[in-house]
């Protein structure tokens, strides 16, 4: 049904700049407080990402860890180790990510973190190396569809894991909450970043 409603036809409107400023100010104030709290480690944020990064950490501890091989990427083309950690903490970490921009060229973001903890962490990694790894309560299982037809996949788990001089390249990650302390962000032109074992 098509209706021609004359009184509505003449209605217009305008935006009051004063009202706009009054409405935007408390939101920006609240956002500043939240971001400051996040940087200080007082506020946890939920995060899920697919940014290609390299992480170097002097020390990593985790509890409730389980890892199994899988495939990641569009169409499942890349082999990856899918790791689930109930609670993880990294000390003296350095995260680097290089983006190739059209005009500027390669730009590397370097994020140095004194301490960060995450809960409900799921990571798909393509490569992980560590100077030393300590496991407690380790388990190994091979899921089977039936007794005579194993699937071929396995799961490695541990109640507690700690590692030192860890370098990993997560392809994707998600975390229920992330809390970080002592965060410093630096942008550099060109490639490069943190050398392994030189997180800070």
């Amino acid at each position: 049904m098509i209706k021609n409603n004359d009184p509505v036809l003449t209605r217009t409107g305008r935006t009051s700049r004063l009202r706009f400023a009054l409405a935007l100010a408390p939101v920006l104030l609240g956002a500043s407080a939240l971001l400051a709290g996040t940087a200080a480690g007082a506020v946890s944020v939920a995060f899920a990402g697919e940014v290609p990064v390299t992480v170097h950490a002097a020390r990593v501890t985790g509890s409730g860890v389980s890892a199994s091989p899988g495939a990641s990427g569009r169409g499942g083309l890349l082999p990856a180790l899918a790791t689930r950690v109930e609670r993880a903490t990294v000390h003296d970490a350095c995260v680097t990510s290089t983006a190739h921009l059209p005009v500027v060229g390669a730009v590397t973001a370097v994020v140095r973190i004194e301490r960060a903890s995450a809960t409900g962490l799921a990571v798909e990694t393509g490569k992980t190396t560590a100077g030393s790894v300590k496991l407690s309560g380790a388990r190994f299982s091979t899921p089977q569809r039936s007794l005579d037809r194993p699937t071929g996949l396995f799961t490695v788990g541990a109640q507690k894991v700690s590692g030192s001089r860890v370098t990993t390249q997560p392809r994707a990650f998600t975390a229920g909450t992330i809390t970080s302390e002592g965060v410093a962000i630096e942008l550099r032109q060109g490639e490069g970043g943190c050398a392994p074992g030189v997180a800070r």
């Binding site: 004063l18 409405a23 956002a31 996040t38 506020v43 944020v45 939920a46």
Partner: peptide, 27 residues
């Protein structure tokens, strides 16, 4: 900001914050 990837990497937060202010400021 705290629940969804830092407000969609801040861009989503900025768009919605300005959008909400514009809605409240419209006369």
């Amino acid at each position: 900001l705290v629940a969804a990837n830092l407000g969609g990497l801040l861009l989503g937060f900025l768009l919605t914050a300005v959008g909400s202010a514009l809605a409240l400021a419209w006369i």
